[in-house]
Structures are given as C-alpha cells and as structure tokens.
Design a protein around this nucleic acid. Structure first.
Lengths: 158, 158
DNA sequence: TTTTCATAGGTTATACTATAACATTCCAGC
DNA sequence: GCTGGAATGTTATAGTATAACCTATGAAAA
C-alpha cells in the first residue's frame, strides 16, 4: 500500500456512499454506516466475525446476522466487496463507478489493494460469448507479495 | 456446457494426470485418484463435504481431513481448482498446461465452465507492476447464465 | 384514522466449511 | 534392523454463513 492520507480516503468514500444512498433512496441506517466505517479503517480485509465483534463492542448486537445483513446491504450497494480468497471483506475504493473488482492480495500481511481494471477483461468476454454464457458479474483476485513485504523478504536479516 | 463425449473427457484428463504424477514422482494414491475420478464425473463444482460423502461411501473414510488432504494434493498438482465463489471444487480441464483458471459459473445450474485465457490479464499485470506487487497466482470468476439456462429463462412457459 | 404492507432489526438455532493436533502405518534407504 | 519421511487414521475444534421466526417502525392505501 502506498503512503496516503487515510483520513481523506475514509471521508471521500463515506461521503460518496452517503450521496449515492440518498440518490438511490436506500436506507443507510446506523448499523450499515458503522459497518462501512469499520471496514474503512484499514485496507486489510476483515472477516465477517471480526466485523461482528467490532459492531458488538459498539452496541449494535452480537449475533451473526447483524454483520451479514450489514454486509449484504453494503455489497449490494457496491460499497463493499467480498474477497473470496480470504472469506473477508473490504470497503470499495471506487464507489463512484460500477466496476469489476480486481484485488492484489498480499499473502504475507493480508493487505488488499483494489485496482482499477476494465469491467471484464476482453479475453474472458470473448470466451463467454463463444460459450453462449451471459456474464452478470465477474471478479479477479491475485495473490502475491506487496511492495513492503517483498522488501522484507529481501532483507538479509530476515 | 456444450454437448461432448464425457467419457473421453474423463479418460483424457485422468491419463494426463497419471502421466504427470509419474513424471513428477508424486504419489498418486488410491484415495487421491478416486477423488479426482469423482470430481471428473460432472462439470459442476462439488463441495468438499460432497466429495467426502462419496469417498466415504466408497470406503475411504468419513472424516473431513480425508477429503481436504486429497483436495490439497490435487490442487497442488494442478489437477483440481477451487471455485472460490462457491467454496467448491472442479477437476481441471487443462491439466497439461500451467494457467490461471477462469470460470464461468452458472447461477442457475451451478455448472462451471473452465475457459482458457492468458495466464494473467495484461491490465492486471500492469496495475500490479505499478503498485510494486509481485503476482504469484491469480484467478478470475464470472457469474451469470449458461447457454442452457438462458434458454429456459426465455421460455414462455417458465 | 385504521389498516396494510414492506423494510429493518432482534434472536435462536443450525448448517456448512476448514484446520489443528496427535497417533499410526508403511515403505525407502542407510 | 533402524530411521525418517510421507500418507493416512482419528478426535476435536475453529471459522463461515444462513434459516426461520418474531418484533418494531413507518409510509402508503383504504
């Protein structure tokens, strides 16, 4: 993850979510908003039960559906993505555009970088068309080493 | 899924797996082989506990590690892929080449078509390079409607 | 106003997915 | 025959997700 003003990051996404929710007339309730805030705290993926623990600590209830319902809503609205490889969730960094999420997942520090690629890669579209398959959603996930962790592995004093 | 001779399909993949296992001097034991045979029976993705049930019925043991160990081996060897979206497993249709699996997952019949696309899409590679991220593996999964199910949805007598 | 309906949230229970940890067996190579 | 590694057997438990049913709230219809 490149250094950046994370406060800005949070505000920008939260404002955009607020705006979009109002525009779409969907109910951005306190528990939903707070779930998004929690996910925005870091760029690492958070498991549902990690989110639940935080929601519980903040007085929103302790049962799994509390977390899963908030996540369902946030994903539906495109504010959050599920990282399938990790069974974990990250706030979307590009809530202003519909897109196919593509993740770079660090196997060392579990950080997740969301990158901006085309909605669906042309090669896959071609294959789908040839097979008569109608793509509705797609996703890409890559695993490897982020810049920082690669540096560490190189270090002689590992 | 296009009509095809599924017997051929199975034999081809099984032979190739056998050959590769011998070549790589890995131990293609009965339970591992049988797990692959079970997964090859259909192009739908099978959950680990579905596989386990089948293995148990065929006398290979009833405890989860039985299935997960076989799957670990088969995935390691590239004979099987995990479909993350479904938490389920499919036999690889291209065991003779190292590749990035790309799946077309039908939301209706759960069939999974593995398509042949480039190892990692150029756009993602570019993004990764820009972020200083070293990709080690990647995958793509698309959800939608397969040819057959699309036909059904169109049907007036739905 | 009262009814009605849809949406959100509370609560309990349970199903599904995956791995840790340790014991045992078997075989290859010394 | 001993030794060490790989595979398997077995028990227990951790982690992920949803079903089902109930209550509250509020806006729209009657």
């Amino acid at each position: 993850m490149r250094p950046h003003d994370h406060g800005d990051c949070i505000r920008r996404v939260l404002d955009e979510a607020e705006r979009r929710a109002a525009e779409d007339r969907v109910n951005f309730t306190p528990v939903r908003r707070h779930a998004l805030e929690i996910l925005l705290e870091s760029h690492a993926a958070m498991p549902a039960y990690g989110l639940l623990k935080r929601l519980d600590a903040d007085g929103f209830g302790s049962q799994p559906p509390v977390a899963y319902r908030a996540l369902d809503f946030l994903i539906e609205q495109g504010f959050v993505h599920k990282v399938e490889r990790l069974n974990a969730f990250v706030a979307c960094m590009y809530p202003h555009e519909t897109h196919t999420p593509a993740f770079l997942i660090c196997r060392n520090c579990r950080s997740v970088a969301e990158t901006c690629v085309a909605p669906t890669p042309a090669a896959l579209l071609r294959e789908a068309r040839a097979a008569g398959f109608a793509i509705e959603r797609s996703m890409m996930e890559a695993e490897g080493l982020c810049r920082d962790c690669a540096r560490e592995e190189d270090a002689p004093c590992d």
